[in-house]
Amino acid sequence: MRVLVLFAHPAQRKSSINTAMATAARALKGVTFVDLYAEYPRFSIDVDREQRRLMENDVIVFQFPVFWYSTPALLKQWQDLVLEYGFAYGPQGKKLGGKQTLACVTTGGSKSDYSDNGGNRRAVEHFMYPLEQTATLCGMDYLPPFVLYSANHLDDESAQHHIRSYPQLLTALRDDRLDLARVRTLPTFGSSELNDLMRN
């Protein structure tokens, strides 16, 4: 399987977990890694090129930090421009049909913040609903999101664990070793569940 990672982060500092995840993903063979903010710092997205990249891959991974319950601005811009009528949807569209999509997100809030009784009043997958429906409308196979909670409050060990597990997830997708049937039974999954979800 050919894997495309679309990474969107407007403030890539050395200390950021997302930056470390990105560095690890970038080094993988058989995975196309795209830093959207580096390629389109002025938000003028090359739609043809992006569509070509989508066509050339089987698994589309969106990697981003959750900002105000949504994607960073450029990733929204990407959706608005790239998922065109006649390409991604519509009678002549559906060119993305059958491709797998996966959101790999980090959140500032903890798992309990993202619960019915927490400050955010919903579980995190609910906030991914626009992305899910977008993928579904385009006929894509939407997988439950891969989530890292409390990204700003992690101890070093958990941070490193997540950073190491991310390339493992991507290679598993690449080599078709992820047990998709089991993944689909979960609302979300994280680095601690990853080992159990792999096939040998």
Binding site: Y69, G119, N120, A151
Partner: peptide, 25 residues
């Protein structure tokens, strides 16, 4: 330049824990 996309500083006074608002991480 750095203003914007700043994570709440862990350990200092920031967004109340109960709110857990997701600012950039």
């Amino acid at each position: 330049v750095a203003r914007g996309w700043n994570a709440p500083d862990a350990g200092s006074i920031h967004v109340p824990k109960s709110a857990g608002i997701d600012l950039p991480s």
